[in-house]
Design a protein around this nucleic acid. Structure first.
Ligand SMILES: Nc1ncnc2c1ncn2[C@@H]1O[C@H](COP(=O)(O)OP(=O)(O)OP(=O)(O)O)[C@@H](O)[C@H]1O
Length: 636
DNA sequence: CTAACGAAACTTTTT
DNA sequence: GTTTCGTTAG
């Protein structure tokens, strides 16, 4: 290999000494432990460039991030720095990488190449079906709850029984029944040729522990890098261990104070045990914050210092003095929305780029009032959090057609499709499912349905469905497929059943546009279940203001940040106030929100909840702020 | 057997 | 706001 003309030293500029150390010497297992805004992500990007520059093939590097958006952002930064796009770099969430690997090597585990990925709603539906089959006599948790428990058990690598005993003692009495449900659920997934989100990790791990194939995969990955390591779970740490077992070049970066995903099994034990699990691991720390003004950091430090079960940490900055964070009291949720909307309007009128502004909240519903006001003022925005674009009912309805075209056995989508059919009710649906179970091909199924003597109207709609599916199979172009479903069937359904059919049709047309970026249905379906895109994110007019849950704002930054809804009733979340560990995690969520701001931080709360007779008051996280760290305003 | 209507009971955070 | 349940008419 010839020496590159541009020396690797380029990628060491724009870094401080501690950061340079990591970029140039993070071989072997390395843990970078550093606070918010200290340049962890920047270090990963520079390290990537450094490796590529020295001739490491992109295809032998895997970058695991918490969201696909974050991974894309890092890759595009690499691209900007190197001036070219690194081809075949592995970058994405654990689930995304797991999906690719299982498509490629799944046959070693008897997983067919065309498996369907069940999203959360699909899993719950399947579980509900299983539970109904059991006929629950006593008090039994809701399918949603069961999914949560099973998922937690998989992600923490803990037997179901232990999960129930430790976090769901209420259901200890029916633990045996829950285990039976779990077993049946696994069987049903197998029969449907489907994997749920947890399986993407679980089966990937199973694959990695196979001596032959696991070693071969690991051999392919010379460098493994992980961002946001504090929000990985035990199963993920086991995958990483196997993934890096040949070359042992594993670089993880994280900050225990920003761990906010314990509800899906994330644990800072992964950080704490890293040097023990990976022999001879090096530890690096970055101590300088480059993001925020001293005033913002003073508040952040004050907030996190209230946590008892937390390693003490103080952020230090070189940035010059700015303005104190502002705390604004409003009368109710609407007036808070009015205040924020007006401020945004002023800022944007004063030529502040909307993309410099972020509005953050604990829960998705807290953005509702603000959305109304922003629409009135014609301020473009996107909301990140809550229901993803691909999880909307009308999108899933259309996707269901592509899913069964791809995987005939996938009953969840069949049920979905048939319940859209005029003239098909509960009884016909069950009969159709019985026939499906006995059919090996689409033709067989269609033929058997003819014999069924469905009600006349039902018969006709079902025939339309089969015609559409046959045409999708003959011409498996994703965009064409979406178009055919919409125009030969679904448009009529929407017009008949919904007042907001126009919007929904627009969404489906948006779906078609996304589909046109794919040449295989399988690739398109993977995007639909694994990408975290939200409504309006794609075709947003101009640069929209971002409204985001704090969870979705991880790793991001804005010059101006608003954190809204800091009321006792909403933040910390109600169910998290009793348990100290849960409460401290809520405090970390607030800490993450505050540390997103570079220069200008605005905190708002209100005194009256519209739908409650109880008065509201400020969040305890606001109450406990030390004297003199914020300026208090009132808005009415 | 299906469709349509209204009441009631949920609604944290994510892949 | 949305899903789920029961009731009733066709
Ligand atoms: N050496 C440096 N010189 C100048 N700016 C820097 C330096 N290191 C980091 N920054 C800037 O500081 C900001 C925070 O960096 P980065 O996002 O990498 O931090 P982080 O540690 O990943 O933060 P978080 O933990 O909040 O995700 C970015 O705007 C980045 O460009």
């Amino acid at each position: 290999m010839t020496a590159p003309l541009s020396p690797a030293v380029d990628y060491l500029s724009g870094l401080n000494e501690q950061q340079r150390q990591v970029v140039s010497s993070a071989d072997g297992p390395c843990l970078v432990l550093a606070g918010a805004g200290s340049g962890k992500t920047r270090v990963l990007v520079h390290r990537l460039c450094y490796l590529l520059d020295r001739g490491v093939p992109a295809s032998s590097i895997v970058l695991l991030a918490f969201t696909n958006r974050a991974a894309r952002e890092m890759v595009s930064r690499v691209e900007r720095m190197m001036g070219s796009c690194p081809r075949h770099l592995w970058a994405g969430t654990f689930h995304h990488i797991g999906n690719i690997i299982l498509r490629r090597y799944g046959r070693h585990l008897d997983i067919p190449q065309n498996f369907t990925i069940l999203d959360e709603e699909d899993s719950v539906r399947l579980l509900k079906d299983v539970v109904d089959g059991f006929g629950s006599p006593e008090e039994f948790p809701h399918a949603r709850k069961i999914r949560e428990i099973l998922s937690f058990s998989v992600n923490t690598v803990t037997p179901l029984r232990d999960v129930i005993a430790s976090s769901m003692p209420r259901y200890a009495s029916c633990a045996h029944l829950l285990e039976a449900v779990a077993t049946e659920y696994q069987k049903r997934k197998k029969r449907l040729n489907a994997l749920d989100y947890d399986d993407l990790l679980l089966q990937w791990h199973r694959l990695m522990t196979r001596e032959d194939i696991g070693r071969r995969i690991s051999e392919g990955f010379r460098y493994v890098m992980v961002d946001e390591y504090h929000d990985t779970n035990r199963l993920q740490s086991l995958i990483l261990y196997q993934l890096a077992r040949v070359h042992r070049n594993i670089l993880v970066v994280g900050d225990d104070a920003q761990s906010i995903f314990s509800f899906r099994g994330a644990t800072i034990n992964n950080i704490l045990e890293f040097t023990r699990v990976h022999q001879d691991a090096k530890t690096f720390t970055l101590t300088m914050n480059y993001r925020s003004t001293p005033e913002i950091l003073a508040l952040a430090n004050d907030i996190i210092s209230r946590n008892r079960i937390q390693f003490p940490k103080k952020l230090v900055t070189l940035r010059t003095t700015g303005v104190k964070p502002v705390l604004v009291r409003c009368s109710d949720a609407r007036s808070e929305a009015l205040y924020v909307a007006q401020r945004l309007f002023q800022l944007i009128s004063a030529e502040v780029p909307p993309s410099d502004i972020g509005v953050l909240f604990r829960s998705r519903y807290q953005a509702a009032e603000l959305e109304i006001e922003l629409t009135k003022l014609r301020i473009p925005y996107v909301v990140r959090g809550g229901l993803r674009f691909f999880e909307q009912a009308h999108i899933k309805d259309v996707i269901a057609f592509l899913r069964v075209a791809e995987n005939l056995r996938e009953e969840i989508s069949w049920r979905r499709i048939f319940s859209l059919c005029d003239g098909i009710g509960k009884k016909s649906l069950e009969r159709l499912m019985e026939v499906l179970a006995k059919s090996a091909t689409l033709e067989e199924f269609a033929a058997a349905v003819q014999e069924l003597k469905l009600p006349a109207r039902g018969e006709e709609t079902v025939r339309t469905v089969f015609a559409i599916l046959a045409s999708i199979r003959d011409n498996p172009d994703p965009a064409e497929a979406v178009d055919r479903v919409l125009n030969n069937f679904y448009r009529k359904y929407l017009e008949k059943h919904f007042r907001d059919d126009r919007e929904r049709i627009e969404d489906v047309e948006g779906l078609k546009e996304i589909a046109s970026g794919h040449d295989s249905i399988q690739g398109f379906l993977a995007e639909a279940s694994l990408q975290e895109s939200f409504r309006g994110e794609r075709h947003a007019a101009g640069l929209p203001v971002v409204l985001s849950t704090i969870h979705q704002a991880k790793g991001l930054e804005w010059r101006i940040v608003f954190v809204i809804g800091l009321c006792a009733n909403h933040f910390p979340h109600q169910s998290a106030t009793a348990d100290i560990r849960a409460l401290e995690e809520e405090r970390r969520i607030f800490y993450v929100a505050v540390t997103r701001a570079k220069e200008d931080l605005n905190l708002t709360y209100y005194m009256r909840d519209a739908f409650r007779t109880l008065p509201s008051r400020k969040s305890i996280f606001i109450e406990e702020i030390s004297e003199g760290l914020v300026d208090e305003w009132f808005y009415s």
